[in-house]
């Protein structure tokens, strides 16, 4: 083949071919680098933060026990303090900082198990709005305390959706969602039945999409205490108190 008459144009196109191959190589290796590292970084960050939060929650629980112990000690010291502590307990209970028991209902919301062919899988899942509407209906029925999978609903509890999970008090929950509410069981049941969007879950959606939903009246349910921190950063009492 020595001395074969290859024209400059052909040589040039070979050069172009080499360049194109190199550019493709650069691009694919850049993409391969970029994608997994970002995702795994985020997963790592989330895991670390969840671990941190777990530790902090444990610490918070410890400190709360310590505080109530000290309060009890103090209460024993004086009768005046006794009434003060009593008031504090009541306020704490109202704020959702203590575990409480009483008659009520237990609502279980679980995803549907089988998705019909060609159907939208989203229809077969419990969404944040479903939980929110049930919680809302229970409050309408006079519920005094509610938790979702052990996450106490307090004054500023958000119920929202993040990807494939539902966040309550920034804790990720998964199906089935168990909602416990303390109040008059009959009134709670009736309030859920009367709520337009909540009742849909128990009737139409249950039969249509096979959602695992149920509501049972209980003589006694236990509602968990709020485990997060309550420390307002911006809100201050308007009467100038502490």
């Amino acid at each position: 083949m020595v001395g074969a008459p290859f024209r400059p144009a052909l040589v040039l196109v070979f050069g172009v071919l080499g360049l194109l191959i190199a550019v493709s190589f650069n691009t694919t290796s850049r993409l391969a680098e970029a994608r997994p590292s970002r995702a795994s970084d985020l997963v790592e960050v989330v895991r670390e933060m969840e671990e941190q939060r777990g530790e902090l929650q444990d610490r918070l629980a410890e400190l709360r026990t310590e505080i109530s112990r000290l309060e009890r000690d103090a209460a024993e010291d004086s009768g005046i303090r006794n009434s003060f502590t009593h008031e504090l307990d009541r306020v704490r209970q109202a704020a959702g900082l203590s575990e409480i028991r009483g008659p009520g209902v237990e609502v279980v919301l679980g995803d549907g198990t089988e998705v019909a062919a060609g159907a939208d899988p989203n229809d077969y899942l419990i969404h944040d709005t479903d939980i929110a509407s049930v919680v809302n209906a229970l409050f309408v029925g006079g519920a005094e305390a509610i938790d979702v999978n052990g996450e106490r609903i307090i004054a500023n509890t958000p119920i929202r959706c993040a990807g494939t999970t539902i966040l309550v008090n920034s804790t990720r929950l998964g199906s089935p969602y168990v909602i416990r509410a303390i109040g008059d069981p009959a009134a709670l049941e009736q309030a859920v039945a009367a709520d337009e969007s909540a009742s849909l879950l128990f009737e139409a959606y249950k039969t249509q999409f096979g959602l695992q939903v149920s509501l049972s009246k209980k003589a006694e349910v236990t509602v968990a205490a709020y485990r997060g921190s309550v420390r307002p950063q911006y809100a201050k009492p308007s009467d100038g108190g502490v």
């Binding site: 040589v11 080499g18 191959i21």
Partner: peptide, 13 residues
């Protein structure tokens, strides 16, 4: 031809 190809690849990389 081989040289041109190699040159192109090298340049790109």
């Amino acid at each position: 031809l081989v040289l041109a190809l190699a040159l192109g690849v090298t340049l790109g990389l």
